[in-house]
Amino acid sequence: MALTRDEVAEIAQLARLAMSDAELESLRGELAAILDHVAALGEVDTTGVEPMTHAVPTTLRLRADVRESSLPVEVALGDAPAERDGCFEVPAIIKAAT
């Protein structure tokens, strides 16, 4: 299966991974080889087969809807790369108008 450089770049963008041209090029070949392998799934007739999600049929358990304690703010912020006023601090989300 052939992939174009632009397709690989689009996937990298969706995956939020900055990539050099060299990385895009090597991934183009590697992804194609893996997808070729995966294409064997097409040989299997799965008509009417329910997709599997758990080894043991289970229903989702819900906890009681009561308030519980969670990590204190200072602990949650303990490994934050940047914080301010008890919040995680990040760079600008919206480009400043020029």
Partner: peptide, 11 residues
């Protein structure tokens, strides 16, 4: 979805 169906057949 296809892979999860094949998974069901493996199981």
């Amino acid at each position: 979805k296809k892979a999860q169906q094949v998974r069901a057949l493996i199981k």
